[in-house]
Design a protein around this nucleic acid. Sequence first.
DNA 1: GCCATCTCCTTGAAACTTGAACAAGTCGGG
DNA 2: CCCGACTTGTTCAAGTTTCAAGGAGATGGC
Lengths: 172, 172
Amino acid sequence: MERMNTAPDSAAGHRWLTDEEQRVWRAYLHATTLLEDHLDRQLQRDAGMPHIYYGLLVGLAEAPRRRLRMTELAMRAKITRSRLSHAIARLEKNGWVRREDCPSDKRGQFAVLTDEGVEVLRRTAPGHVTAVRQALFDRLSPEQQKALGEIMEIVAEGLQPDEAGADLPWLR
Amino acid sequence: MERMNTAPDSAAGHRWLTDEEQRVWRAYLHATTLLEDHLDRQLQRDAGMPHIYYGLLVGLAEAPRRRLRMTELAMRAKITRSRLSHAIARLEKNGWVRREDCPSDKRGQFAVLTDEGVEVLRRTAPGHVTAVRQALFDRLSPEQQKALGEIMEIVAEGLQPDEAGADLPWLR
DNA sequence: GCCATCTCCTTGAAACTTGAACAAGTCGGG
DNA sequence: CCCGACTTGTTCAAGTTTCAAGGAGATGGC
């Protein structure tokens, strides 16, 4: 039952994944979807918002004066401006974020974390950190944590829409 | 500017992430969202469906007689039955999947991959594999690939809704 | 100053996801 | 056989995301 474990060029000229690569890829898909779902549910239950929205609040909390321009926040969160627009509208309804005009650019808007927003984070952050810890860090050795960090940095760098290689479009 | 790099119990009794853990966690979030977005777009463009739908077709293609019960397919893809129901409805409209009644259980339905479905996979799989390869495997050393696989298996196991520990509810 | 062009952000509609509720079918004890 | 408990898969409504389009303001060459 031994299968070939190399990925030779197929007749069509592309390489399939080796058996081992396939195992890794499936484990990756499996784990990342489970983790994302897990955290989404945890936050939906405890904070009343999906994981990505929580990340937006965190992003604002870390910014000077608890505010960021929409485009800046969208880039940090790796989402489109459109998506952010809808998301901020929802968070505004919750009273956790408020919009403010940018004085120096009349097109611009700041998303500003409100005191209620800060309070929500203060109340829910510990539970979220615990969830991340239990699902990830508590299960990995220090070496594995280090390796994971390095791997993810490599992957992220390769997909970065800006920065590295942005002016070398033929490499993309 | 040196910050403490341990995560002592806070007054409230929970542990924060260390600076290093935080770096790893952000790299993880960053990389996984970029990769997911990348593959979603790649498949939307080349195959006309999101990544998860593609995974459903793959799941069916690998099953005996290219068919699976809805619940079984949902479990393999790690999605809810509700979501699967909608997804199959859409794939059915595309002509890539068809439903069939289960003879032995009148409640049951099979999702069956059609010939058109097979054809879509045949046409789009190479491009998808290439995208995965370029984004992930081509950038990692063999050691890193191995480490990634092990890490992801550990994480997945810890979040598995069934299997390990399912009958030991007090451990969850 | 003017205009083409770009950037910032929003909008609306369509697609997708979620969670709860539901009809229909199965199962097992009594 | 019958009934309660469970399973299977769908549906509905509400929420989220995407994509294309667009309004408003900034920018720079001429």
